[in-house]
Design a protein around this nucleic acid. Structure first.
Lengths: 232, 232, 232, 232
DNA sequence: AATGAATGAGCCTTCATTCAT
DNA sequence: TATGAATGAAGGCTCATTCAT
């Protein structure tokens, strides 16, 4: 379980490579239906060597979940803390969410399908992270209701509608396909914000605000989405 | 392998019972992670007897998928064929969809998660049914755009937004919980229709139309949602 | 782990047969160095079928320990409770002990060598049984000291001397070889009792008392030592 | 495989240290159940470096057996060759035997339990050493019978009684515990010699003879029992 | 003198499935 | 109809050992 204390230069690189390969396989066939041997084959490693890196099959799953949840939570908290209009923050959060989904599509599929295979602490931690994530979204929605941007909705159900719309995307979107995160976010939010809008409210210039914000950000400090390989 | 040609009175009953139990287990732990022995235990049957009813583990999965897809498609086609406004038909379709999801929550979870374990024909047929289903939704959305109810949207993405919103519901809804199909449908459609609305269009009286329609239907011919046990 | 609730006529027989074979193999090569596959080969069973009977490798070890300890403790308690002179009871206990050792020589070897491979409850229970056993011997030795038969010895060390002498026998005795339980017991006790004797005490007629006692017993009720196969 | 021909200053020291650690681990968990990695951890050495010192796991076992048998045989032969009464020589041999057992308790446990894991020549040599050892004891016992000190006993069984009593000690004695070699030897021999005694023979002054002998020895030349680390 | 990385056989165990009864 | 018994492949994982550096 514990990795050997000293490991050479290439160790972590190789380790991340293995997790990549595993994520792809788990996404394709499901965690339970994928054998460790297949992961070894994909990584070009014999079974024994594999365990030198991974500890256990479940640990592999934990790392994949982490790769999804860690940057997602970080991004979401960063955006929620911005000094901007709640609706703009929701739009930015939507885009970050979709960027993360698109950047690690197979990881997300594993994250959504296979968390049932986690047990004990790992499972508990995952579920609490999900709740934390939902909490942030809900707070923004409530803020938007309170300032009149949105009509009075059941906060829980509004959150779930927002998340339904975004989180199911992984089921059909293709990497490098027709849709990128920004366009998707634009469309989703156009629907949701018009659907949630308070009386007399419209959000026609929201995309301009987004452009402004992103331009500001980019000149200040770029925030890259990490690629699938390499720790978040 | 094939079901024995002559079977007694209780055969089909017992068979359906077994599929029920299997669906519950597969939903909880995943298809691949659930053993045939567990199904046998849950059904109170030894392994040998189980195979007398089920043929194979994969066949069990096929039956569960069928139980989801068959009534879903039937309902959707029935509604699409109605001589009603496209927006009302979408609202009715939404409700049917949610009724089916809520009536067979565990089946739906299996349907969404485990179709990757199907192979060959079974898989092909399933995917084509999904496309068929999406086609119907898309046609209604296009019809609503054409009569000006909805603004001009990318038809594919509009469909996916509609389906995202509905199909992700199984991930959090609880049977016998806070939300029933009709309330959920009302809320989802309030958001989606306002979000999709063409210029100057509102759908404030849509729920009245729904009430009227349902009242008519009920006096004419009840269309029950079949319970989880028993063939569709 | 739990054996199936219903099993046929031959189940228990076959199970005992497997434990026999396992005991022989464990005795020869050691528990840890013996593979489950070897047990399967010896029992003429494929690996899968083996597990239908045994539950786990450790469970096999537990059963072997039980087969040693259960009749041993039963015999020892039965004899300690007799209304006879302490020295005679020690002599009878010695014989029972040796009878048990000789009757299940390979089991005893496993019992002495491999209990370290037990963990948790199984280990705890075993150790407490050992202490219980030693307690009975020590009480008899103390009784013999108190009535003057034996000189005043350190009770703990006297017990250990008695047990050293008997328990190491498994390391060299051969089943069906030169020595049977009664002769061995006679010789061991001749040495020990003369060695332990109080001033002026001799036990020249102890073997006559043994003969009398055994004759009495046999006419009353024979107490057979169970063979290696079959539960105690 | 063979030790490298040229090795530096600390090589042998480190090698002995590794064998020490291995003996402790083998004693605790058994040879077969102990991994080479654990030995490496205990010695603070990576697996590769370990093999630089040990050659193979079985070689480690051979060395441990040697550390037990070599000084044991040497001591026993030295004592048997003394020009003293056979009974005194047996008493001295008993003490040496127990000193060796106590000095290397874990080695002895390995020696008694795990010789079955040796194969080929290593095993043969070990067994012949054991027979050699028993032969010496038996000769002394026979000598004591022939001079009338002991009664006429079956020589083989007398030897085995002597060895049973001593060799089982490792199973319960604790290093630094209540009993040291000299006290144990005194008690064991008190029992055995009185038990073996010929008609009218007593050995009341044997401990005085022991004291005399040891005093003589010590002034002449100390014969230290080597500590667990360091070759015999 | 020591290391990290790799191997591949073997470990115990579980699995879906079959079949005589 | 239903069972208990059996199979053999595959499951995840550990092992002693090697070797380039």
């Amino acid at each position: 379980m514990a990795r050997p204390p000293g490991h050479g230069a290439g160790y972590e690189t190789k380790r991340q490579e293995i997790i990549d390969k595993a994520a792809a396989l788990f996404a394709e066939k499901g965690y339970a239906a994928t054998g460790i041997a297949e992961v070894g084959d994909a990584a070009g490693l014999a079974r024994g060597a594999l365990y030198y890196y991974i500890g256990s099959k479940e640990h592999l799953l934990v790392e994949i979940q982490d790769r999804v949840m860690r940057p997602m939570l970080a991004g979401v908290h960063r955006i929620a803390a911005l000094d901007e209009d709640p609706v703009l923050r929701l739009r930015l959060l939507s885009q970050t969410l979709l960027e993360n989904i698109l950047a690690r599509l197979d990881h997300v599929r594993v994250y959504e399908h296979d968390y049932r295979n986690l047990r004990g602490d790992n499972r508990t931690r995952l579920l609490s992270q999900r709740r934390e994530f939902e909490g942030v979204v809900q707070q923004l929605l409530v803020a938007a209701m309170e300032d009149g941007s949105f009509r009075r909705l059941d906060p829980g159900l509004a959150t779930l509608q927002f998340l339904n719309m975004h989180n199911h995307t992984y089921q059909w979107v293709k990497p490098g396909g027709e849709w990128d995160a920004r366009s998707l976010s634009r469309e989703y939010c156009a629907t949701l914000f018009a659907g949630f809008a308070g009386p007399g409210r419209r959000f026609d210039d929201i995309e301009d605000h987004v452009s402004d914000f992103l331009a500001k950000r980019e000149t200040a400090a770029p925030v890259p989405i990490p690629r699938s390989s390499g720790r978040a």
